[in-house]
Each structure stands twice: as structure tokens, then as C-alpha cells.
Design a binder for these strands. Structure first.
Lengths: 185, 185
DNA sequence: TCAACCCGTTTGGGTACCCAAACAAGAGGA
DNA sequence: TCCTCTTGTTTGGGTACCCAAACGGGTTGA
């Protein structure tokens, strides 16, 4: 096994952050420009300009007449995948391992673009299994079961699929509630 | 939180593999030369020569009169730490998440040098807790408890400490037994 | 109208990797 | 002795990032 499998990832650490930054800017303020991305990532406009040129050539990022950035379908899928992995991983580090939130965030951010899709799927199932069985609403079990089935049957669905997205979203919103509770204190 | 915390790791992915390669060569054949490292990593002698120059300057790698490589105390500590993280992570992916061994190996290898020491400690405890409670020999519990105590008390011991090493070794040897069982089939 | 500003891009420099190729030095075998 | 192999190093090229600085286009307030 070649140890440099490392660099044959779909996107680099840098590209991962460029893509998720654009996605988040679109959600937050409705548009994303080179300067916005640069500000968000803490690097210069020049660097972003060059990086995005590559991502545009690879068909992941698009641009309208007004220099407003967007993500292609493929770009969106990749950005969602990375975001999902970050959320899953952070949740595991925080909830299962009991690590402090900032450390969990940092470690999750470092590896979000490296772990394989299958690992993320397995992690989602694992976490979900261990969530408080208290409000075991049947729709949650349904999603996990559906996900398990698709993995078992080797059904190759583009990552992230619907089920894992739902699991990820639930994890994230429950984590947001927690931090809101903390703010209230 | 700056997303580029990424590159302020003690060692790069490349350096991590150079160090662990030397360590493994020393174990396996008693010595390690530039060519051996190059062969093991699948890169040219020239690249290794240049990389090791840097690691020598940083005091992680040493060289005797006969061009035989070795690791300084610090180099050994780092190499052991990385190796420990890889074993822990692989074990988690394989045993807890049920991922196939090769995928577990690959993902563990990608992130071994990125996850923080504290995460590794927490993971060790977590895995150990979930190991078959069957042969719950008291010395295992003892190590886990010692590790937990040191974390709780914020006792900053150089990573990896004695307890986590022991846990890691046990995980690795049990994993080797498994693959031996597999070969016998 | 024009200076001040924000934008995006380009360019030259720097770092950290990799490779291929050329070299010098030592170790044998013929 | 000479030829050949292996070894470690150096050098020039390439890629992927980053920055600082300069430049050209717009917008806007005075």
C-alpha cells in the first residue's frame, strides 16, 4: 500500500476549505465573491483568485457575469460531503470520546477531507446507534437501517446520500442547541 | 479558529513516514540507510537524502560513521507517537466501525500524524472500555485508570506515555493474531 | 470631475514536497 | 588493475500552496 495515497484525494485540504467557504457564504449572505472567500479563510485575495482558477477549470466552481461565485453540482456534492464528515467526526470526538469542543473541531477540520466515504457512513451508523435510546423515534432507525442496507448491498450512491445527510443534520442541530444552552448560562 | 492549524503540526505527513520507516527498519533488519528508507517509502534516494537533511538539522535523525541512520530520543518519541495513533485508529475503524482492514489501514495512515495527542488518549480509553469484558484482567483496567487519571489531572506527560503504549501494543498484537488466524484458514 | 476605495488578477518570491539525472566514493569480481 | 554495482549527494525541473505588491476597473462621495 503506497503511503502517498494521501495526495490522491478528490480535493486537497486547501480546496476543501475553498469549497465549503463558498457554500457557507452562499447560505449566510446569499452570494460569495473572491474577497469574501479570502476574508473567511484568512488568506489574500490573490491566493484565492489563483486557487479558484484551478477549481473553475476542474468544473467545481462557477462564476456569473457579476463575478459572483457558485458551486457546480459536483462542487456542491463535494462540499456537502466534506461538511458532513466534519460534523460526524466532531460529534464523535465530542460526544463519544468526551473531548472539548474546540479540540474536536480542530481535529475534525484537519481530517475531514481525508477520511473515506465508507468510513463516514460507518461512523454515522455507529454514532446513531449510541445516541440516547430515549427518544428512539422510528424514523431515525429507519434512516440508519436504510443506510446499512445500501452499504451491505454495495449500492454505490454518491456520497453523501440522503440518509447520511439526515443523520448529519440531526447531529449538527443537536450540537447547536447545546452551544445555545451554553450561551444562555 | 484558523483552518491552517493544519500545517503547524510537529511533523508533516512526509516526515512522519520517514521517521516511522527508520524505526521499523531498525526493528526489522537492525540498521537503516538512505536507500533502505527510499525503497520502503517508494521514493528516490535523492528525495530521502534531502528530507533527512532537514530532519537531521531538526535533531530528530542521527547518523553514525557508517552512514547508518538512527533516531534521537525526540525522534523516537515522535515515531512511537505516530505509530501508536495509527494502531489506535486502525483498531477503532476495524473493530468498532467494522470497516475492512485495508480501508482502515489506509484511513488511519492518512490521519495518524494529524490527530492531537489528547484525542489519541481518549480513543485508547474508549476502545479499551468496549473491548470484550470477558477477560477483564485487572491490569488492563489499571492502565486505563492510570491514563484517565493523568488526563483528568492535566498531568502533561510526553505523548505517548507508558499506559497508552501498553494499550496500543495489546491492540496491535491482538490484531496480528487475527490476521494470523486468517492466514491459517 | 476626481481622489479614495474596494475588487479581482497578475507577478515575483518563498516553502515543501516530488523526480530524473549526473557525480563521487567505496566494494567486489574478473 | 579495471569494470561494474551500490550508495549518498547535488542539481535543475515541476507542482501546490502561500504572500506582498502592483495594476486596471468600477463605485462613490466631495
Amino acid at each position: 500500500m503506497d503511503w502517498r495515497e494521501f495526495d490522491q484525494n478528490p480535493v486537497s485540504h486547501s480546496a476543501a476549505h475553498h469549497l465549503t467557504a463558498i457554500q457557507q457564504l452562499l447560505e449566510d449572505q446569499g452570494y460569495a465573491r473572491v474577497s469574501d472567500v479570502a476574508r473567511k479563510l484568512g488568506i489574500t485575495r490573490g491566493s484565492v483568485s489563483v486557487s479558484l482558477k484551478g477549481l473553475r477549470q476542474r468544473g467545481l466552481v462557477v462564476e456569473d457575469q457579476h463575478k459572483h461565485l457558485g458551486l457546480s453540482d459536483e462542487g456542491q456534492r463535494i462540499a456537502r460531503g466534506i461538511h458532513t464528515k466534519r460534523v460526524l467526526f466532531k460529534a464523535f470526538l465530542e460526544k463519544s470520546l468526551g473531548l472539548p469542543a474546540d479540540l474536536a473541531e480542530m481535529d475534525a477540520c484537519k481530517i475531514e477531507h481525508l477520511i473515506s466515504d465508507l468510513t463516514a457512513e460507518a461512523l454515522a451508523i455507529y454514532i446513531d446507534r449510541r445516541e440516547d435510546a430515549s427518544d428512539s423515534s422510528s424514523d431515525r432507525d429507519q434512516q440508519v437501517n436504510a443506510l446499512e442496507d445500501s452499504i451491505r448491498e454495495g449500492r454505490v450512491e454518491a456520497f453523501p446520500g440522503k440518509e447520511i445527510e439526515t443523520i448529519s443534520e440531526r447531529l449538527q442541530s443537536s450540537s447547536e442547541e447545546q452551544s445555545k444552552d451554553k450561551d444562555d448560562e
